[in-house]
């Protein structure tokens, strides 16, 4: 199986990671085309392993996916190329956008535009909630398990003012003690 140079690999992560809008899944799909189908640097099994483990790695799934595929090809240097190539250019852009907001925030017209985007953030968060919950409510069993966990975490933070860390820990413990029925793919 051919192996890329570090430069070639960094370039693919940079190009795909910073030109694909829409979050992690489109980026992982685009990288599959590059690594598995076009360049044949990875087997479909390598890709599948990286994809499934990325979903159970803490943090942002797509960054873990890039670190995993990079490591499969070139070890730790490849992992570093994956994580940084995927995030660093977009991070610079995010800082520039933040600076732009800061510089123009005293202008009433810009302020009005920002106020519109701030409202959009709330809708974005609700959408994230819906997309997080959606895979787990396809059966009555799933709903019976999902509702108390979601509502319990909500109440623990909002009403009882627990901090998020113990809530996450309790949820993990509950998940261990109360196994769910795996959804068939």
């Amino acid at each position: 199986m051919p192996r890329p140079t570090l430069r070639q690999l960094t370039w693919v992560f940079f190009r795909v990671g910073n030109s694909t809008f829409g979050g992690g899944l489109p980026t992982m799909a685009a990288l599959q085309r590059e690594f598995v189908e076009r360049e044949k640097w990875l087997t479909p099994e390598d890709y599948g392993l990286a994809f499934s483990l990325a979903r159970i790695t803490p943090g942002t799934n797509v960054i873990a996916f890039c670190a995993a595929t990079g490591a499969q090809m070139l070890g730790f240097a490849g992992a570093l190329a994956g994580a940084l190539g995927e995030t660093a250019p977009s991070a610079i852009l995010a800082v520039l956008i933040t600076q732009g907001y800061e510089t123009w925030r005293s202008n009433p017209l810009v302020l009005a535009a920002i106020a519109g985007t701030i409202a959009a953030v709330v809708g974005m968060m609700w959408s994230s909630i819906a997309l997080l919950v959606k895979p787990y409510i396809h059966s009555s069993q799933g709903i019976v398990r999902a509702v108390p966990i979601v509502l319990g975490a909500f109440l623990a933070l909002y009403t009882f003012h627990l901090t998020p860390l113990p809530i996450v820990g309790l949820a993990a413990l509950l998940g261990l003690l109360w196994p769910d029925a795996e959804r068939k793919k």
Binding site: V150, A153, A171, L174, W178
Partner: peptide
């Protein structure tokens, strides 16, 4: 199962 429970709790948070 534990990971899925953490994902669900994240939605509540």
């Amino acid at each position: 199962s534990a990971i899925r429970a953490v994902v669900l709790a994240s939605a509540g948070l």
